[in-house]
């Protein structure tokens, strides 16, 4: 578990005709798209359309039935890419290690890869926790925190890695509107400081339009549309219009 052999620069992602079935049911039905290095790419779509499954393929946690995924031009399968580049994923559930404290979770990457001295790690951890509005909670156990707080810890854990490619799975679900804006700001700051390649899965229209260079709309396991926020707003596709403009009206 030595420190990754660092390659600099950001990581492009290419998904080529990706197909995946679970128990005979096809969840991803031939997905293709490219994300340029340093781009912020948002994936939107209804629940159950396969967005989380797609992200897991991109970071190499799931194996495609057919098609391929290239990160920085290499197949993500096999842990080559994971040891050459700093990648991070913020899971929909947070996926914090419950046997560790909040601080240990946030510093885990640095501790396990022995990248810094313990004192220095503690300083970085405190700084990142403060950035997500959880100053001083290092010694808490993840199970004492609310779902939204756990999600923010997971975001801090990703920030610590200084990733070259970072995947967010619904980063603002379970957060109040104020915190959602704050997380959006965090993602923007990360983008402006390090220019990592960012993939965000979200239903949060404000977040999507606030950070995206391009947005992909996925529905029933297929890409329905890819374009800039303006292009998507002007799309004539009724499904996309409904998804973007759905409002609850109180009559």
């Amino acid at each position: 578990m030595s420190a990754p052999e660092q390659r600099n620069g950001n990581v492009s992602v290419a998904v080529r005709d990706l197909r995946k079935s679970f128990n005979g049911e096809e969840v991803l039905k031939g997905i293709s798209f490219d994300v340029k290095p340093g781009e912020t790419f948002v994936i939107m779509g209804p629940s159950g359309s396969g967005k989380s499954v797609l992200l897991k393929h991109i970071i190499g946690l799931e194996e495609p039935d057919s098609g391929e995924i290239l990160s920085a031009g290499q197949s993500v399968h096999g842990s080559e890419v994971l040891s050459k580049y700093r990648l991070a994923m913020v899971f929909q559930s947070g996926a914090l290690l419950k046997s560790l404290t909040v601080g240990e979770n946030v510093g885990l990457y640095l501790t396990e890869h022995r990248l810094m001295e313990p004192g220095e790690i503690a300083r970085v951890v405190a700084e990142k926790l403060e950035a997500v509005g959880l100053k001083g909670l290092e010694d808490r156990s993840p199970s004492e925190l609310s779902g939204g707080m756990q999600k923010r810890v997971a975001i801090a854990r990703a920030l610590v890695i200084d990733p070259q490619l970072v995947l967010f799975d619904e980063p603002t679900s379970e957060l109040d509107p104020l915190m959602s804006v704050n997380i959006g700001e965090q993602i923007k700051q990360m983008r402006d400081r390090l220019h990592p390649t960012i993939l965000v899965v979200t239903h949060d229209r404000d977040l999507a339009f606030g950070i995206a260079d391009r947005i992909a709309m996925i529905s029933e396991g297929k890409i329905r549309f890819i374009g800039t926020p303006n292009e998507i707003k002007n799309s004539r596709d009724p499904m996309i219009q409904t998804f973007i403009h759905a409002e609850l009206t109180n009559t």
Binding site: I59, L61, S79, M89, S93, L96, L108, Y109, E112, H113
Partner: peptide
């Protein structure tokens, strides 16, 4: 840890 995706999280951190 497997069920609650903690193992997945470890793997994404190359642990």
């Amino acid at each position: 840890m497997r069920v609650y995706q903690e193992l997945d999280a470890l793997r994404t951190m190359n642990i």
